[in-house]
Amino acid sequence: MKTLSAQEIFEKLKGKFGDGVVSLQTESVNPPFAVVPPGSIQEVCRFLKEDPDLLFDYLVCISGVDHKDKFAVAYHVYSTEHRHRIGVKAMLPHDNPVIPTVDVVWKAAIYLERETYDLMGIVFEGSCDPNRILLPDDWEGHPLRKDYIYPEQYHGIKI
């Protein structure tokens, strides 16, 4: 067991991917985020999971964030072997939020991605189960977006 700091983890990522990872976001953020372009999220996650010094085997959480002009997808990962943690973040454009799925890396991502799609409307490309999960299938819109307007009624019942 060898616990690495976020900076060391980021150095390893930088060494592997070079310009494939953009920056480390540390200021008033806990745990720090490694910001990566959406296209390379799958390779980064696979490296995080399989590298013997990192071994991030536990996907804690996937959250979508609506920053009004863009979306962010935040992945919190944890290593049960080395007991260190880091966040990975990808920024998506607001008009077409699409990102490759990571459920091929961690199975835990299946439900977390379904939920993020359902409530935030971020599409996970290649997902094995790209359906709504919490809201009914015929619900319109994605409620956690900042510009979501509450509907007047659903199936004739006033909201």
Binding site: L135, P143, Y148, Y150, P151, I157, K158, I159
Partner: peptide, 11 residues
């Protein structure tokens, strides 16, 4: 809330 029925007497 956007998903809660506001009273059972509505349904």
């Amino acid at each position: 809330s956007y998903s809660v029925v506001k009273g059972v007497d509505l349904i």
